Amino acid sequence: HNLTITQGKLFFHYNPKLCLSEIHKMEEVSGTKGRQERNDIALKTNGDQASCENELLKFSYIRTSFDKILLRWEPYWPPDFRDLLGFMLFYKEAPYQNVTEFDGQDACGSNSWTVVDIDPPLRSNDPKSQNHPGWLMRGLKPWTQYAIFVKTLVTFSDERRTYGAKSDIIYVQTDATNPSVPLDPISVSNSSSQIILKWKPPSDPNGNITHYLVFWERQAEDSELFELDYCLKGLKLPSRTWSPPFESEDSQKHNQSEYEDSAGECCSCPKTDSQILKELEESSFRKTFEDYLHNVVFVPRKTSSGTGAEDPRPSRKRRSLGDVGNVTVAVPTVAAFPNTSSTSVPTSPEEHRPFEKVVNKESLVISGLRHFTGYRIELQACNQDTPEERCSVAAYVSARTMPEAKADDIVGPVTHEIFENNVVHLMWQEPKEPNGLIVLYEVSYRRYGDEELHLCVSRKHFALERGCRLRGLSPGNYSVRIRATSLAGNGSWTEPTYFYVTDYLDVPSNIA
């Protein structure tokens, strides 16, 4: 807008934040220059609390790290170098490059900038070799853009010569660093050979998330399962459950009422301010606690030095998902009996873990797994792929695949051998790939016309006998059925096997 004052003059007093240069501009645009008398524009009460600059400061050096910015700028000295009290560095987070010096300023003089007072450097006698002032900004957020400017702080001049310097606002972004852990990993099994893994992005990506790394490792069953005799009275049979499938998407929606109208769909109840505040506090606490764990609990591995020492970490090797089922080394339970199943799973520490690289999504279907087997899954978020990966501390989750139908069934015939004193040795093959492992066998036998009897055969007993022995049988026709019990439950009964026990007292003698 054009402003013209045809008559009258300007009068400025007691404006401590208004620089004289701005008042002189007002004289020019209003056409009143030359009308004012000496005392109409006070030299001592206008701009006496402001830094009124008329020179431009330029930054000469900028260096960044993930949490620091090192700045240096060209030296500046007023005509009387004693008038320079120091520099004021202003900075704040700036997602967009549209910041002005006066953003967030209120009537009390406060604003949204963080201000650092910096002492002037030592003055050199040689004007050509003056030290460049600077400042190291610490405690910054990774991968965050900051708006920065600097200006001088000078003393009051009796001659009211307006001098000083100020830089333009520059924008500097800190470097990326390792992201925080992925949030809320959930693993479920939808079949006997697959596990579905879902997660949420890290709360602090500290860069642009480029991919996720998912490692999985087959877990050995508890050692007590191999040692305890679950045929003993009072000892509860062990059981394991597989990871249940995901709930429906509708039930997972946030901010939804727990109660549904019987007449149909209901609208979600909005969260109160107290609920939102509580969630923010919980989120802040979780982030602080995660940072504490990362800094205190997890110790970084030592990389190899120039002395030739090897990095103890196993090298990563990509495998196809079809090879995942046989990740671990199978060892027989008892070496003397080769027909026992290889369900003991000690994992070799030198073995390469299978892994998958996930790009542009937060889910993965891990296939080719062994049925009813526990897996430990390790999830890392990465925001750099080359020249070397920059990934987060791992988040861990466990899951067990679903049982395989008929995996616990005894394959092959049940054979028998009759000894003296009416002892019958029953023999059968253990299931080759049971659900988890076989903890015991149930032997059901009966003599024709009598009630059915049951015998429990422990895992250890089966390994020693290759089956079991029935003792003290009365003469007669017998039928026997056997079924295995694994961590997933009972298998199917075998087809009945028949044998006849004679009275050993009636056996004919070869003595003449």
Rank of each mutant, 00 (worst) to 15 (best):
F246Y: 11
L235Q: 04
F355M: 09
T497L: 09
A309T: 03
K406D: 10
M402N: 02
S243Y: 12
G436Y: 08
A395T: 06
K287W: 08
W242M: 02
F462Q: 12
Q380M: 15
L228W: 05
A463L: 11
V296F: 04
Y478H: 10
S315Y: 08
S344Y: 07
P312K: 06
S274A: 15
N421Q: 05
S398V: 06
A488Y: 15
L470I: 14
S367A: 08
A407P: 03
T241N: 15
H454A: 05
S363T: 06
L505V: 11
V397K: 09
E465W: 13
V296M: 12
S398Q: 09
C468F: 09
S458I: 07
H294V: 02
N477G: 14
S320H: 10
A381W: 00
T373P: 02
V443M: 08
R319Y: 10
D204Q: 07
V423A: 09
V296K: 15
E310K: 02
N490I: 15
L505Y: 15
S243Q: 08
D229Y: 13
E356G: 13
T401R: 01
V331P: 13
F215V: 14
L437M: 07
P431M: 01
L225D: 14
T333M: 11
E495M: 03
P238E: 03
P312F: 08
R390S: 13
F419T: 14
E465K: 08
F246G: 12
Y445K: 05
L455F: 08
P245G: 08
V397W: 06
H454W: 04
Q380W: 08
E404A: 04
S342M: 09
V424C: 07
V411C: 14
D222A: 14
V329P: 14
D261R: 00
T340M: 13
C456K: 04
E258T: 11
E442I: 07
C267L: 03
Q384T: 10
S363P: 10
S243I: 09
V424A: 13
G322S: 09
S344V: 06
R390F: 06
Y498D: 06
S305T: 05
H454I: 06
E247Y: 12
H416K: 10
K406Q: 12
K357P: 12
D311Y: 13
V345I: 08
K271H: 05
F462E: 02
K287R: 02
R466H: 11
E227K: 06
S444V: 14
H425C: 06
Y292Q: 01
S284C: 07
E310N: 13
L487K: 11
S248R: 08
P245S: 10
F499K: 02
V358P: 09
E495S: 14
P238Y: 06
S348T: 05
N206P: 02
V334I: 14
D229P: 00
Q252T: 11
T373S: 09
R240Q: 13
F226R: 14
P349M: 12
E282A: 07
E350V: 09
D291Y: 02
L235K: 04
K302I: 12
N490W: 11
Y478I: 01
C468W: 09
F337W: 10
D229Q: 05
K432L: 09
L369Q: 05
W493P: 01
E495F: 14
I209P: 15
P312N: 09
A309I: 12
L237V: 05
T373R: 07
V334H: 09
E417T: 13
V324G: 07
Y448D: 04
I438F: 08
P238S: 04
Y230Q: 06
L228H: 05
S262G: 08
P354T: 13
R471T: 07
G374T: 05
F499E: 09
S239T: 14
Q380F: 15
L232D: 08
T307M: 13
Q219N: 11
S284D: 15
